Simulated scan of single mutants.
Amino acid sequence: MEAGFEPIGPRRAFEGAVEQIAQRIRHGDLGEGDRLPSERQLAEAMRISRPTLREAVKVLSKAGVLEVHPGATGGIFVASGYVPIELLRQQSDVRLAEVAGVLEARRLLEPQVARFAAENASEADFERMQMTIEAHKQMLRSGEVLEREDRFLQLDMQFHVRMAEATGNATVVGLMRSLLRRLEIGRDLALRQPPIPEWVVDIHERTLAALRSCDDAAIAAVMDEHLGGMERAWEQETGRKLRLLG
């Protein structure tokens, strides 16, 4: 497990540790009840001191994301699969002026990721994407969307992570994870419009169907619609035009 964590630069070691653990939970790599590597293993993997790691764990525990169990059978555990966006916003260096660049980069990258995923995905990959759709549907059925909007958006982001993982290319996955991290902070900074839950579920179902069909035209059309929703919302909210390839 510790191999998934990365070294953190010395200037922002504390913020980096908080963000890295939180993002692994938001991306669905770690779920409720999962045990993290030991304090020593985590500190070594991130190349930070154990006191710095403890402070990061303390912040995440206070937010209800982690819990620490003492004793020989204890350790650091994920208390909740939900990470409040406010926690990531506090640690983020994304500025409002940079959000346009994030959206433009996504338009260049993600349609190609979708095509690559369609060509390389296994049935297990498709099933993992379907699981995020089912979680969205459960939220709709229970009427929790308005009260837990950020949780709904977290599942939306996980769908896109699963699609990137379906490419089987670690570099692509890393690029998409970084882009999606900045995108969700950017959305929180820039957009006051809530998501339309029924549309999100529908577009995810149609995206998954297009990937399964491996039809380039269908993939291009659904990805254009998928990305266009947030792009138009950004332009309406800010009065700025994005530089998108026509």
Rank of each mutant, 00 (worst) to 15 (best):
E32D: 03
D34K: 01
D34I: 01
D34N: 09
R35M: 07
L36F: 01
P37R: 00
S38K: 09
S38M: 07
R40K: 11
L42V: 15
L42R: 04
E44G: 08
M46H: 10
R47T: 09
I48V: 15
I48A: 03
I48H: 01
R50S: 13
R50V: 14
T52R: 05
T52G: 11
L53H: 00
L53M: 01
L53T: 00
L53I: 02
R54W: 07
E55K: 10
A56D: 04
V57Q: 06
V57L: 07
V57A: 12
K58E: 09
V59T: 14
S61E: 15
K62Y: 07
K62D: 15
K62M: 13
A63H: 10
A63S: 12
A63V: 06
G64C: 04
V65W: 00
E67F: 07
V68S: 10
V68Y: 11
V68I: 13
V68A: 06
H69L: 07
H69D: 13
H69R: 15
H69Q: 13
G71H: 08
G71K: 06
A72D: 09
A72F: 03
A72S: 11
A72G: 08
T73K: 12
G74A: 03
Y82C: 07
Y82A: 09
V83H: 12
V83S: 12
V83K: 11
P84E: 04
P84V: 03
I85K: 02
I85T: 05
I85S: 12
E86A: 15
E86V: 15
E86Q: 15
L87E: 03
L87M: 09
L87Y: 06
L88Q: 10
L88V: 02
L88Y: 04
R89F: 04
Q90V: 12
Q90Y: 11
Q90A: 15
Q90C: 09
Q91P: 13
D93Q: 14
V94Y: 03
V94P: 05
R95A: 14
A97C: 06
A97E: 13
E98L: 04
E98V: 03
G101V: 08
G101F: 05
G101L: 04
G101K: 09
V102C: 01
V102E: 00
V102Y: 00
L103A: 10
E104L: 07
A105K: 02
A105L: 06
R106P: 01
R106I: 10
R106Y: 06
L108C: 02
L109P: 14
L109S: 12
E110Q: 05
P111H: 08
Q112R: 13
Q112L: 08
A114V: 15
A114R: 08
F116R: 15
A117W: 01
A118H: 05
A118K: 02
E119S: 15
E119T: 10
A121N: 05
A121C: 14
A121Y: 02
S122T: 09
S122V: 09
S122E: 05
E123S: 13
E123I: 02
E123P: 14
A124T: 12
A124Y: 03
E127F: 07
E127Y: 11
E127D: 12
M129W: 02
Q130M: 09
M131S: 13
M131L: 14
E134T: 06
E134G: 08
E134A: 13
A135F: 08
M139N: 00
M139A: 03
L140G: 01
L140C: 01
R141E: 04
R141C: 03
R141M: 02
S142I: 02
S142W: 02
G143L: 00
G143R: 00
